[in-house]
């Protein structure tokens, strides 16, 4: 069982409160959505949960062990993160990018082993970019870049995968395909999302952030109510429950 939990996490860089007293638990095997308007602290919370930022107070625990006491390398073998639109100045091939996922698994001086290469191919196949491995990363479309980063994260062989708005700038077909991929993945996933309908369709659980606080958490059908949407996003919406949860937006409040 691998569960990631935050307990009373607060983060206030230079006195500005960004994450305020957040407690949440991502259960083993679940696909969990992290929702909230722009600036509600989703990306910051993801960085804290990934151990990339130390919380000002509170604890993040992986299977009950605080991240603070874990070595970076050990953490990187258990938890992978895909940040928003990562960019590089180097002329990397897709294979080079996916191979980065093996960095925590081998000594820094060692070449990729046969097993490393097998994992890389496997991860690429799983993310649907196996035929792109020898292409330049810079020539890929937005959707393919996201898939490459997901393949890199899979090559880390993590138990938990954190994704920060992976559907940003993707057209609707690629959004659906990407979330279907996330959904199919065997790992526990925490996905920051903007689109409430996508969250409702693909997540087992959602947490809603507003001004750095978790204001609701649970199955999307229970959490995404008309009153919550108007309160958090400031829009009027109608929620239909006939075929799954479908949210119809009526306009700003």
């Amino acid at each position: 069982m691998t569960a990631l939990e935050a307990e009373r996490v607060r983060w206030a860089p230079r006195g500005r409160l960004v994450v305020d007293d957040v407690s949440l638990r991502v259960e083993d095997g679940a696909t969990v959505g992290l929702l909230g308007p722009n600036g509600s602290g989703k990306s910051s919370l993801i960085r804290i949960l990934a151990g990339l930022r130390a919380p000002s107070s509170g604890d993040v625990r992986l299977d009950g062990n605080p991240l603070a006491g874990m070595s970076r390398r050990r953490l990187a073998r258990r938890l992978a993160v895909v940040e928003q639109e990562p960019a590089t100045s180097q002329d990397l091939r897709v294979r080079d990018v996916v191979a980065l996922g093996r960095v925590p698994h081998r000594p820094a001086w060692a070449p990729d082993s046969t097993q490393d290469r097998a994992v890389i191919e496997e991860a690429a196949a799983h993310a649907g970019i196996a035929d792109r491995l020898d292409q330049r990363f810079s020539t890929l479309s937005g959707g393919e870049r996201q898939r490459t980063q997901i393949a890199r994260a899979l090559a880390q062989e993590p138990e938990i995968l954190l994704l920060d708005e992976p559907t940003n700038h993707l057209d609707v077909r690629h959004q659906l395909a990407l979330l279907a991929l996330v959904r199919r993945m065997p790992t526990t996933c925490l996905v920051a999302l903007h689109d409430l309908n996508l969250a409702a369709a693909y997540c087992d659980q959602v947490f809603v952030l507003s001004q750095g606080r978790v204001v609701a958490g649970g199955p999307p059908a229970e959490v995404l109510t008309e009153s919550l949407i108007s309160e958090v996003y400031g829009v009027r919406a109608r929620v239909h429950h006939d075929e799954g949860v479908v949210i119809r937006f009526l306009g700003p409040l």
């Binding site: 659906l176 395909a177 279907a180 959904r183 689109d195 309908n197 799954g244 479908v246 119809r248």
Partner: peptide, 9 residues
């Protein structure tokens, strides 16, 4: 505006 997620899976 209506958004409908067509779940392919």
């Amino acid at each position: 505006m209506t958004l409908r997620a067509q779940d392919p899976q």
